[in-house]
């Protein structure tokens, strides 16, 4: 005859497995039911993150700076060459900007969109996870809401996935669950940019007849309502037109340095047009 302790153990196993399955399925059916608990956890993380981060960021910063000294001379030369090229580009763009302003005045058009932003610091990331998310140290107290776009250095980094009072979780654009409606800037060809983990992103649903080249700039289309129109997302890295299928296989390299995100800007809302 089995002892009561054995039944107790088996019952515990069954209960925990069933509860795990319920939690897993509940989040697909009605995610808002669990969001209360998730918010509590995120809020509890905040003081711990701040304490640990303040101790280790200074040490880590010094260590990173020391590591960065290696190969600094080579990098310096590369950057100097880049500056020369960029100065030339800035001159061109300044000319174009003035021309654009004149044309806008002539046509009485509205000015481009401006955004209210909140700067935040990345306080946590889990590189061992396949899920590409980071935690930032701003939340609903700063006006951040779920779905708001997040900009990194250079371009779009992702969007707010979950937020509590002082902490928010950002779904990076390289995550498999990230989908952004985008345009290829040069030919205005539209597609959906899906994250591909460490491989970057894939631009999907672009027909083979469309002329997309390596190096083409990809910007947000503004169609889905999450990302404002024209935000820089990345550059086309690989274009493959296979034998079968309707669409091209296009890989996009994100403009934001996703692996080294330290500070981000959260776009709160569009300002009223000035024009």
């Amino acid at each position: 005859m089995a002892s009561p302790r054995k039944y107790y153990t088996i019952t515990a196993i069954v209960v925990f497995v069933v509860v795990s399955l319920i939690v897993f399925s509940l989040n697909f059916k009605s995610p808002e039911r669990m969001s209360f608990f998730r918010k509590i956890v995120l809020e509890a993380v905040d003081p711990l993150e701040c304490a640990v981060d303040s101790v280790f960021s200074s040490v880590g910063g010094a260590w990173k700076r020391y590591v960065m000294l290696v190969g600094l001379e080579r990098k310096n030369k590369e950057l100097e060459a880049k500056i020369v090229s960029l100065v030339r580009d800035v001159g061109d763009y300044r000319e174009m900007s003035l021309e654009c302003a004149r044309l806008r005045e002539i046509m009485n058009m509205k000015k481009g969109f401006e955004f209210t932003t909140v700067a935040a610091r990345v306080v946590g990331r889990n590189r061992s996870s396949v899920f590409k998310t980071v935690l930032i140290n701003k939340g609903t107290a700063d006006g951040i809401k779920t779905g708001f776009p997040v900009m990194g250095t250079g371009g779009v980094a992702g969007r707010i996935m979950e937020t509590s009072r002082n902490v928010s979780k950002v779904l990076l654009l390289v995550d498999y669950n990230s989908n952004i409606d985008v345009l290829v800037q040069r030919n205005r060809c539209q597609g959906v940019l899906r994250g591909c983990g460490s491989s970057g992103c894939e631009l999907r649903y672009v027909q083979k007849s469309e002329d997309v080249k390596t190096g083409d700039v990809v910007v947000s289309s503004g169609l889905a309502g999450v990302f404002p129109r024209g935000l820089l997302i990345g550059k086309v890295a690989v274009v493959k037109k296979g034998e079968v299928g309707l669409f091209q296989k296009i890989m996009v390299h994100p403009a934001a340095d996703i692996a080294r995100l330290e500070e981000v800007l959260v776009i709160l809302r569009e300002k009223e047009d000035n024009g």
Binding site: F16, F131, T133
Partner: peptide
């Protein structure tokens, strides 16, 4: 098993994209 459940749930809350995955 309680430890595994709690760790999974907290990891889901902090870094998970598909909630409930780490719990399971």
């Amino acid at each position: 098993i309680t430890l595994a459940f709690v760790l999974g749930f907290l990891l889901d809350c902090i870094t998970g994209v598909v909630p409930g995955f780490f719990v399971l």
